[in-house]
Design a protein around this nucleic acid. Sequence first.
DNA 1: TCTGGGGAAATGTCCGAACATTTTAACGAG
DNA 2: CTCGTTAAAATGTTCGGACATTTCCCCAGA
Lengths: 260, 260
Amino acid sequence: MSPNPLNVKTKKELPLYRQISNALLSGIRDGLFPVGTLLPGELELIERFGSSRHTVREALRVLEDMGIVKRQRGRGTLVISTEARPAFVQAVRDPKELFTYPENSAFRVLAEGHVGDGDHWPVKIGEGVDENWARIAGLRTLHDGSPFCWTDIYVLPDYASIAQQLGRTTRPVYEQIAETFGETVQRISVEICAGSLVGSRAKALEVDEGTPSLVLYRRYCGNGNRLFEVSVTEHPAESFSYSLEFNRGWQAAEHWSWSK
Amino acid sequence: MSPNPLNVKTKKELPLYRQISNALLSGIRDGLFPVGTLLPGELELIERFGSSRHTVREALRVLEDMGIVKRQRGRGTLVISTEARPAFVQAVRDPKELFTYPENSAFRVLAEGHVGDGDHWPVKIGEGVDENWARIAGLRTLHDGSPFCWTDIYVLPDYASIAQQLGRTTRPVYEQIAETFGETVQRISVEICAGSLVGSRAKALEVDEGTPSLVLYRRYCGNGNRLFEVSVTEHPAESFSYSLEFNRGWQAAEHWSWSK
DNA sequence: TCTGGGGAAATGTCCGAACATTTTAACGAG
DNA sequence: CTCGTTAAAATGTTCGGACATTTCCCCAGA
């Protein structure tokens, strides 16, 4: 016979460690354990909930995975947020995927100098870049020679020498900088806007004057979250589009929705 | 006196469970446990590594967090990937953040119908949408009445009735659909390209003919990953840009880099 | 005042055991 | 051959204990 003959428990109750994590989350959201403070220690939680240390730690792990708390050996469990980690994420295994460059594209340097030199000083680049930064301009072309995008690269003065080894390369610049100067990319921000191609750029990309274009600003932060490179690429609209995919990640939000 | 007086162990060795997870990862990458197969059971791993079940499970948890394996109660531990989960993620706490609508913007329906009706049939929408889908067109304006973007919304025939309760609303359409029809948004893909505003759209948005624009295609998949809504918004270039931010997430890659 | 020792507190690692739940497959009755 | 039962296998949950490592703080000593 099937187990549980009469005691129909349609609503399967949550495991203990989930109940505990929910209880803690309630406490955090209700202000009992404000952000910035330490949660009660494991020993105290064991007493309070009357369960084993393993179970309590499992509960704390749930909160850690949610991005609610940060566990620090020797210090305690710090409350760092009242909201769960994002439910939707875009998966990028490698910064390379932020570039949708075709395989066999090549980059050719057309101009070098400093930010202060020319008149190409897009305000969009914004804070963190001053006139001492180096500027490298070039064209990225497909294997058959057809132009793909115009690129302006701004790098930290210390890294200006990267231009020498750039020449005619395939690999992304940020990757070469990271390798040469020991940077580790910690953060990348991408800004996308529309523009139109005029003058020398239109000519270089072999399109009509005023052709709509997609402009991408990419900012790379390395060790210590210091901005070290900004790249601006401009693509003719008809030959380029940028796509993102967001998936529901981690535990779905509904799992802990009741504890508000 | 400080502990460890003579035995200078500069290189602190990895915890057991990390050694085990690395060993398993090596096995996976070396083809000993190909993707799609099951890892040896916990009991067998306990024997093989001579440690406790807790430690083995901890090791498996590491692989699970990396996205290398998927644990299935009653079945086993499935190898699902040979590469670690993405090191960079864009954090989106709520699908709402994919819209950068200003707070006080309002949506006004200008036209309703079916996909097959008019001539507005962008090929870009692509697979999954046929001529039976409902189409809702409208304009989103800021509080001061200035137009912000043109919007075309395509929804599953079953959900066509959503148009009635749309009228003049602030909330995103996908949210209303999810609420009304019990969908749960599982996946959102965003595609961005440049265009130019012509004809009635340019007039509606009060810009010159041919003004560059940013076009965003958003596709929403719900329960069972079924596509249920596609929205196309077109923004005048000068008044809109789209930004993303990627951060290094989870364990940094270097933690397990030695085991190749 | 500054420094170092040492203890207390907190989390991390590891072991052992037991039972629960789910899945799969074998098996037997019809 | 089909359907339901059952048993085995696998992971999930929970308890208990022990020691290691890190951090913080107090306090004695220079």
